[in-house]
Design a protein around this nucleic acid. Structure first.
Lengths: 347, 347
DNA sequence: TTGAGCTCCGTAAACGTTTACGATTTCATA
DNA sequence: TATGAAATCGTAAACGTTTACGGAGCTCAA
């Protein structure tokens, strides 16, 4: 069922059929109607390969997600709403979104080279940016349209949107200090993911702004999952004085952290204050509920899509923004995990 | 950088270049070497559209995931290992895997029609099959190669692999009955997802096999997330006699269920036995740790890939299996949530 | 009556591959 | 030397689109 079959069936040239289907102006409204009706009746869908070959464009955008330990564990509940937002924008422009899955045994840059070299997508959204991210360098020098969910220390000017981990750290630290805490630990990713650096810097800066000395022993690297949270708690318990509060960079860590503290007879929310990261169904139903930060993930997806489109020549007129480079706000959602207990109430 | 540029650069015909790159036999080893070296040096990657158009095949397989409530919340930790397994097989055949994201506002069958009609993929893996799943009907009548992760009540013969929810139900019920339980509740998905029906049937059959009467009041529909678990616990608390045990179909539900019981002063694992579903980092770090079932997700992915390839003409010789229609085994992992308390120890 | 302008449509080239087919060369053998 | 087979390579068609270009038919004012 190619366009040729359709044209033969209608006894019209294939050029006219193509123009009719693509909404070109120089076609009789009456014949256009005939074409559209026949196309629907015969179930004709244009072959994407033929179209791509001719137009040099695929109408497809790739969202690259790596299956690393850092992202695998909260992948579903985080990315799905983002996808929804992205798609809601793309749909208006007849763009399709696919998730590009880079396996753990494949080099991300090599994967990108393959998929981009094949002209598989017109543009890319990459996420979980590393401090040194070869993907950014690669995409920049090939001039592939892309937007990064996350900053990077890689040089060059490119569009990015990053969660406000600096703001999160500042808000959390200030809040805890106002509650009377002085020894505030943080759990940071053990990997080279850039948000870890941002988070650490924000933490240090907030301490300094509040006149609390920085203690490197309170920075606890761990994987961003339950096991990592367990280890963070263990590290805290090993210290001579148990830190009175801890800030986590991932909500799954809270589960493991709670567990370890329970095992030690310590009640989070009563004996130690905990602030987690992302508000979710999970954080609302933990015991104690987790004080954390809310993100509008769907809006984030929308903004990502718009940022990408503004870099693509074909859409530049519809989205004439400057290169997007912004920090995405997050709102604190108070829970039970940092409120029941105040060090200044007992000392 | 097309094959034509490469041919010109080497002063060879493009036909020979193509044959050299594709490993055809009728090409001088020496010129092949030259071609390969030049291709790598100039960074030539064949254009997929051109290739697809000529060959009628895209070398791409789509894994369709819908962002429903049922799948969104455990999407990452469940699907990522499956993807890994699928990819490990595909890589050997130079097939690329992409995740197809069907938004919530789009009809899954319509989405499938678009992506399949465009000749975007050579084959499909669909998941989260519904009891009546129009996707299966659609794919069958178009003769698109596919495999389903999950059964369906839709007619027709198609390859599928389904988690052994019947076996899970039987194992859990028998275990609890052996512990002395008689009033065993189950939380089942509120949606039309097929696993809910399988799970329910297995539950009923296991009760009957053990001579325990079936009480429809103990079947509690809920969403497969924390909130659903909370509601399951609420429903249990509303009954005249609190059921002594509950089996959940999703591990996230356990968090909400624990929460509701804690609020009521009831300790899961001591006052009520809980068996959850999938073993994961999460279930290992809950308090109490969740008795649940382990799945080898990577192997599942491998099997899915093989099942799909065996239905594709181009690979039928490498995977000459019959149509796969199998139940995937799961292994019970004892936790703390169903052991501390035994109704027969106190009565 | 002429021709200008418009509407509508057909023709054919082009996108980048792969591959069937045939042409050329080499080389051993009759 | 003539013949045939084998090895190697070039030619050109084909895949399904889109689109630049031109042509046919029509209207209408000059």
């Amino acid at each position: 069922m190619s366009i040729r079959d359709l044209a033969r069936h209608l006894d019209i040239s294939i050029g006219t059929v193509s123009r009719a289907l693509n909404g070109k102006s120089d076609v009789n409204p009456e014949t256009r109607e005939r074409v559209l009706v026949a196309a629907k009746k015969l179930g004709y869908v244009p072959n994407q390969s033929g179209r791509s070959l001719r137009q040099g464009t695929t109408n497809t955008i790739g969202f690259m997600i790596e299956s690393t330990i850092e992202t695998a564990d909260n992948g579903g509940s985080f990315f799905m709403p983002v996808f929804e937002g992205v798609q809601s924008v793309f749909r208006r422009h007849h763009l399709d979104l696919v998730a590009l899955l880079c396996g753990t045994d494949e080099d991300p840059a090599a994967y990108l080279n393959r998929v981009v070299g094949r002209r598989f997508v017109d543009g890319l959204i990459i996420s979980a940016t590393m401090r040194k991210d070869p993907r950014i360098k690669f995409l920049l020098e090939r001039e592939i349209p892309f937007v990064a969910l996350g900053r990077s220390a890689t040089g060059g000017a490119y569009p990015w949107i990053d969660l406000d981990f600096e703001g999160v750290a500042a808000t959390a630290v200030t809040r805890l200090i106002n509650f009377g805490h002085k020894r505030i630990a943080i759990g940071v990713p053990a990997s080279d993911i850039n948000l870890g650096y941002v988070f650490r810097d924000g933490y240090k800066r907030a301490l300094k702004a509040n006149g609390v000395p920085f203690d490197p022993e309170l920075v606890l690297p761990a994987h961003s999952n339950e096991e990592g949270g367990y280890q963070v708690a263990s590290s805290m318990l090993e210290q001579k004085h148990l830190p009175t509060a801890v800030i986590l960079v991932n909500e799954n860590m809270a589960i493991g952290l709670y567990r370890r503290f329970y095992e030690a007879g310590i009640h989070p929310g009563r004996d130690v204050a905990v602030i987690g990261f992302r508000e979710s169904t999970q954080s609302r139903f933990l015991s104690p509920t987790l004080t954390c930060f809310r993100i509008s993930l769907r809006d984030l997806g929308i903004k990502l899509a718009e940022a990408l489109l503004s870099t693509m020549p074909a859409f530049k007129d519809s989205y004439p923004q400057d290169r997007v480079a912004m920090v995405w706000p997050m709102e604190l959602v108070p829970g039970e995990s940092d409120r029941s207990w105040r060090p200044n109430a007992s000392s």
